[in-house]
C-alpha cells in the first residue's frame, strides 16, 4: 500500500513542480491520441452513418468487417502499420517509422472501427419513419444525413469516448511503431512500461495516476455533455 501512496504523492509533486519530462510525455500523449481520435471521427462517423442508413450489396459483410475492427488488437494494428512504413515497406520513403505520425496512423486504425461501429448501431436505432418524414418534406440526401447525424449525436459522442479511451490506454501499437523513444515517441503508456522495466516504480505509479486522471477528465466532460442535453452549444450543433 505504501508504494501506492508514494506514487500518488509523487504524481502530485511531478505535476505541480512542472517536471519537464512528464509534461513532454503528457503533451505528446494528448497530441497523438487527440489527433488520432479526430481523424477517426472524420473517418468513422461518416462511414457509420452511410453504412447504417443505406441498403447496398455486401452491407452485412461490411458491418461484419467493422465489428471485427472494433475488436482489433492494438498489436495487430501496430504490425499492419509497420509492414507498410518500414524502410523496406511500401511507404518506407515517407520515413514514418518511429515518428508520432506513425503512432497516429496506428491509433486511427484502432479507433475508427470503434467509432464507426458505435455510430452505425446508433443510426440504425433511429426510427426509420424519421428518414421518410424528412424526405417527404423535401430534404435532399445530405440534409437527410445531417438531420439523422444530429439525431444520433449523443451516441456518436459515446463512440468518440470509447475510441479515445481505447487508444490513450493502449501500448502495443505505439511501442511497435513509435519505438518508445525518449522525448520523441514516448507516451504515457509506453513510459509506464519503461519505468517498470527500469525498476522506477514511483514514477510508474505517478504516470498511471496522471493517465487515469486524463481519461477520467475527458470522459467526465463528455459525459456531462451527453447527460445534459440542455447545454447551449451542443444544441446549436
Amino acid at each position: 500500500m505504501e508504494i501506492i501512496w508514494q506514487g500518488i504523492k509523487q504524481a502530485i509533486i511531478l505535476i505541480f513542480t512542472g517536471n519537464r519530462e512528464v509534461y513532454e510525455i503528457l503533451f505528446l500523449t494528448l497530441k497523438v491520441s487527440g489527433s488520432a481520435v479526430f481523424f477517426s471521427m472524420l473517418l468513422g462517423i461518416p462511414v457509420g452513418v452511410l453504412v447504417g442508413l443505406n441498403k447496398f450489396p455486401l452491407k452485412k459483410f461490411i458491418i461484419a468487417v467493422i465489428n471485427t475492427g472494433m475488436g482489433l488488437p492494438p498489436v495487430a494494428a501496430g504490425l499492419i502499420v509497420i509492414l507498410f512504413i518500414w524502410r523496406s515497406g511500401m511507404l518506407g520513403f515517407l520515413k514514418l517509422m518511429y515518428t508520432p505520425p506513425a503512432m497516429v496512423i496506428a491509433q486511427v486504425l484502432i479507433a475508427s472501427p470503434i467509432i464507426a461501429g458505435i455510430t452505425l448501431a446508433a443510426v440504425q436505432q433511429i426510427d426509420p419513419k424519421l428518414k421518410q418524414q424528412v424526405l417527404s418534406l423535401g430534404a435532399n440526401r445530405f440534409q437527410v444525413y445531417w438531420i439523422l447525424i444530429r439525431e444520433a449525436r449523443l451516441p456518436a459522442l459515446a463512440a468518440v469516448m470509447a475510441g479515445f479511451g481505447g487508444i490513450i490506454s493502449e501500448v502495443g501499437a505505439v511501442i511497435m511503431v513509435g519505438g518508445n523513444i525518449k522525448g520523441e515517441t514516448r507516451v504515457l503508456t509506453t513510459a509506464i512500461v519503461q519505468m517498470v522495466r527500469m525498476g522506477n516504480f514511483d514514477m510508474a505509479i505517478a504516470l498511471v495516476v496522471i493517465l487515469l486522471a486524463i481519461t477520467f477528465g475527458v470522459n467526465f466532460l463528455l459525459t456531462l455533455i451527453q447527460q445534459k442535453e440542455g447545454i447551449g452549444w451542443i444544441r446549436r450543433f
Binding site: 515517407l94 514514418l96 515518428t99
Partner: peptide, 8 residues
C-alpha cells in the same frame, strides 16, 4: 497521407 508526407 499528404498531411503526413508534408509534415515529414
Amino acid at each position: 497521407t499528404s498531411v503526413f508526407a508534408f509534415s515529414c
